[in-house]
Design a protein around this nucleic acid. Structure first.
Length: 519
RNA sequence: GGCUCGUUCGUCUAGAGGCCUAGGAUCCCACCCUUUCACGGUGGUGACAUGGGUUCAAAUCCCAUACGAGUCACCA
């Protein structure tokens, strides 16, 4: 049996698209499931300046998600180079071969002429197919043109008398009429290859057995099949997976529609969170990192397991009930026949729910390691104070329990780490600046000051006794106390909060809150 | 417009002729737990695009229609 070889061929755009990541994942999964090889190839055929810089975030996305590649940038391999910009000779050789065999031809038509042809076709409402004028030129003229180096593109001569058929692993039988296909340009005037051609040469050269790519490439397939045939290549198996759409829409998720996503109710929370968190840790805002980019999820504190689980489940399922999937489980069960045919929307809610689950699986140590950088980068704790803070951060995380969904959520309880707290005005007025509450708070602070042991049990006991004596509901004090000590209406249990803030500081904050009411 | 693909709860999906008065998850709602929030528990709303066939029987097969989408470059 031949080894399964899959590939993902990103072009260096400076960021990794979350939808593209899903395509990459499926390729990776299929390779791993079959103990095959996953190849990363860089599609930098056109004018990229800083390939290195633009490729960085893409490789980083793979590294973050722990999707390793067997051949490609940084690791090399036997079928390199893995940058298309370095494979020029291979493409030229393939072009020469087709030219020599009469399967391709030099086309001397100018872009203006082509454009005119196209417009004419449109005007007459007939499908456009390129006119093979250069093929009609007399031999002598052709020779002359070639000798004088007249600019020409090379077109592949489509055999228009046949059908092209494939058995797509996901879509099944698909066929096209080759008579409707224009002769594709395979080499530009400047000698560089075009995508459709480079892909074919590279897939064959890299011995790719399964071309798993998004459905939008389906219409490129007949041309590529024809090209493979002309080159005498073995034709790879195709699997066109549905593309990922924007939440709540049926349109392909695209960076171009970002401004629309901002107001998309399904997406809004993600943008809002970005605008809240990124400025604090010096990473800009949702303008610089947004949910279309994989980097967004990394930097806002998602877990690879959460993102991976979500990606694997959009367009693929294991059975009728399993939702929580580790990467290993997915590798074990991943098959192409369980990929759905219709496009699937990225679902932020579901992603978030997977994230919650995987976060809850983490050990305390892992959570501390994940959260600490946020506190440091936001300037809330000193990086040097690591040892001292470490245990305290752990206590905070412990008190947070399941409330911690993203690592960046630790920033929501900055009041445990900072001297000054910011009151939520609305809640302060509602729960502290209320008849009888300031007096209660003052009395409570006096009593806890006398406590020998500052523990949850004692704090609770004290509070209940006080409320009983004053004949008020415990809720009255509890709510006011929470706001007074943390400034926020939500968070860990109120006694935990008291403990974490500490005896002295708690009393101090209660006093400050009461004063604020009086003045 | 041509070509191609697709259409099951709001969303992600299960479903390969009888197991389907359509299952799970998520979201949402209610209740319980908790005098916060979150977790957890219980329950609820909610879908086979439409029309024709084929068949004893169709979400499942066939055909049409509608709708949606992708693609039609010297982009990738």
């Amino acid at each position: 049996m031949t080894t399964v070889r899959t590939r993902f061929a990103p072009s260096p755009t400076g960021y990794m698209h979350i939808g593209g990541m899903r395509t990459a994942l499926f390729n990776w999964l299929w390779a791993r499931h079959n103990n095959g090889v996953f190849v990363l190839r860089v599609d930098d055929t056109d004018r990229q300046r800083n390939v290195e810089e633009a490729l960085g975030p893409i490789l980083q996305a793979f590294k973050w998600l722990n999707l390793d590649w067997d051949e490609g940038p940084e690791v090399g391999g036997p079928h390199g180079p893995y940058f298309q910009s370095e494979r020029g000779e291979l493409y030229s050789a393939a072009v020469e071969k087709l030219l020599a065999e009469g399967k391709a031809y030099r086309d001397y038509d100018t872009p203006e002429q082509i454009q005119a042809d196209r417009e004419a076709a449109q005007k007459e409402k007939r499908p456009y197919i390129n006119i093979r004028r250069s093929l009609e030129l007399p031999e002598a003229t052709l020779k002359q043109y070639e000798e004088e180096g007249r600019p020409a593109v090379v077109r592949f001569l489509v055999p228009r008398d046949q059908k092209v058929e494939i058995e797509d692993e996901i879509r099944g039988h698909v066929e096209w009429d080759a008579s409707l296909i224009s002769d594709p340009v395979i080499q530009r005037t400047d000698g560089t290859p075009l995508y459709n051609f480079a892909t074919v040469v590279d897939d064959a050269g890299m011995k790719i057995t399964h071309v798993i790519r998004a459905e939008e490439h389906l219409s490129n397939t007949p041309t590529q099949v024809l090209l493979h045939q002309a080159l005498g290549n073995e034709i790879p198996t195709f699997a066109h997976i549905p593309f990922v759409t924007a939440p709540g829409t049926t349109k392909k998720l695209s960076k171009r529609d970002l401004s629309k996503y901002r107001t998309n109710p399904n997406f809004k929370k993600m943008f809002d969170r970005a605008d809240q968190v990124f400025p604090m840790i010096g990473l800009g805002s949702s303008e610089t990192l947004n949910p279309v980019m994989v980097e967004y999820y990394e930097k806002i504190g998602y877990l690879p397991a959460g993102v991976l689980n979500s990606l694997a489940r959009t367009g693929w399922s294991l059975d009728d009930k399993t939702e929580i999937l580790s990467l290993d489980t997915v590798i074990e069960h991943f098959t192409l026949d369980r990929v759905v045919k219709n496009s699937a929307a990225l679902d932020p809610d579901k992603l978030f729910s997977f994230q919650s689950h995987w976060m809850s699986e983490l050990s305390l140590e892992e959570k501390i390691d994940g959260c600490t950088p946020y506190l440091v980068n936001a300037g809330i704790i000193e990086e040097t104070a690591e040892n001292v803070e470490h245990g305290f951060i752990g206590s905070v995380i412990l008190s947070l329990g399941d409330r911690l969904k993203l690592f960046s959520d630790i920033l929501d309880v900055a009041y445990f780490f900072q001297e000054d707290i910011a009151y939520s005005e609305k809640d302060f007025n509602k729960r502290v600046a209320k008849e009888g509450v300031p007096e209660l708070l003052t009395e409570y602070s006096v009593r806890i000051a006398e406590l020998d042991e500052f523990t949850v049990e004692n704090l609770e006991e004290t509070l209940k006794t006080l409320c009983e004596e004053k004949e008020v509901s415990t809720g009255l004090l509890i709510h006011g106390l929470r706001i007074a000590v943390t400034g926020s209406p939500v968070g860990p249990g109120v006694y935990d909060c008291l403990l974490l803030v500490g005896k002295d500081k708690s009393i101090e904050r209660i006093k400050a809150a009461v004063n604020k009411v009086v003045t």
